[in-house]
């Protein structure tokens, strides 16, 4: 495009280079024949094969995926409930305080969240004997912070939604719970899906909080990778990272493509409707 000046083009290139150089390097080095992560020794795919034989990596990856899945599902349910309550609940004193409090975990340093949860779990374990630290403690911790993100997304989505839609449904005879399932939830579904994905990735991504709340038997993938940094990285980690990047890229690409297609279809529909109106008016 000729109207974009060289200056803007350069800026864009710098920005994207900054973002993607590390990842490109990582992908390249995943095909490194050398045993050292940072020394190039020729092209090879052997680390991908090694990866499949590394039971520790596979176990931690599966654990991470399981935690992320449970976290995302629970966070969407809880976060949606919180979001709806905060937006649709009538005005009361201290309402702003409550809305503000839901977003506190967003700005809280992870170390503090992790530490406070650890203390809670230890206290509970001393008092009740449960929970044993491992899968469930990590999951509970992840739900705690990711539901705040979901609640924020749902709040934004609800605020943009015409409240008279729910009123109309009620006016037509829908009881409040019915209206929630018939109207509100279908309309905020896109927000719930993005909330689910966000919670899933954040859980998959988290190292700090998981380290605090994990037990001796449970190692998530980020924890495993990080521990390897200390004991010596092997290129099979690069291969693993490349696979993750590939999966994410495919996911994002498909989602983007679907959204674009829907958008285009909508525009075409609206144009058609507008054209018919002019025809109707000419006829009338």
């Amino acid at each position: 495009m000729s109207k974009n000046s060289k200056f803007v083009t350069t800026l864009m290139c710098i920005g994207f280079t900054f973002l993607y150089i590390p990842m490109v390097l990582l992908v390249i080095y995943s095909f490194n024949d050398s045993r050292f992560v940072t020394v190039w020794g020729g092209f090879s795919t052997k680390w991908y094969g090694e990866l499949l034989n590394n039971q520790l990596v596979i176990d931690s990856a599966i654990l991470s995926l399981q935690i992320a899945f449970v976290t995302a599902c629970a966070a969407v349910v809880l976060g949606t409930m919180a979001g709806i309550a905060l937006v649709r609940f009538g005005k009361f004193k201290g309402r702003t305080l409550f809305s503000g409090m839901i977003s506190a975990p967003l700005v809280m340093p992870e170390v503090i969240t992790g530490l406070s949860l650890l203390m809670l779990f230890i206290a509970l374990e001393n008092a009740l004997g449960i929970p044993e630290r491992g899968f469930w403690t990590i999951t509970i911790a992840h739900i705690t912070f990711s539901m705040a993100f979901v609640a924020v997304i749902i709040q934004a989505r609800l605020a943009g939604m015409d409240e008279s839609l729910e009123e109309a449904a009620m006016d037509l005879g829908g009881k409040p719970l019915r209206v929630l399932f018939d109207i509100t939830l279908p309309l905020i579904a896109p927000g719930m899906i993005s909330g689910w994905l966000l919670a899933f990735t954040m859980s998959l991504d988290d190292l700090v909080i998981a380290s605090f709340t994990a037990g001796p038997g449970a190692n998530t993938l980020p924890m495993y990778i990080f521990s390897k940094v200390k004991t010596g990285l092997r290129p099979d980690i690069n291969a693993l990272a490349t696979l993750i990047i590939l999966t994410v890229a495919i996911g994002v690409f498909i989602a983007g493509w679907l959204m674009l297609r829907q958008d285009k279809q909508r525009k075409v529909d609206e144009q058609m409707a507008a054209m018919e109106t002019t025809k109707d008016e000419q006829a009338a």
């Binding site: 008279s164 839609l165 109309a168 006016d171």
Partner: peptide, 17 residues
């Protein structure tokens, strides 16, 4: 509202999209 013998047409029409 859901038990009143009344129906309303909204300014925004409020059609379920």
């Amino acid at each position: 509202p859901y038990e009143r013998p009344v129906n309303m047409m909204f300014q925004s029409y409020a059609l379920f999209p």
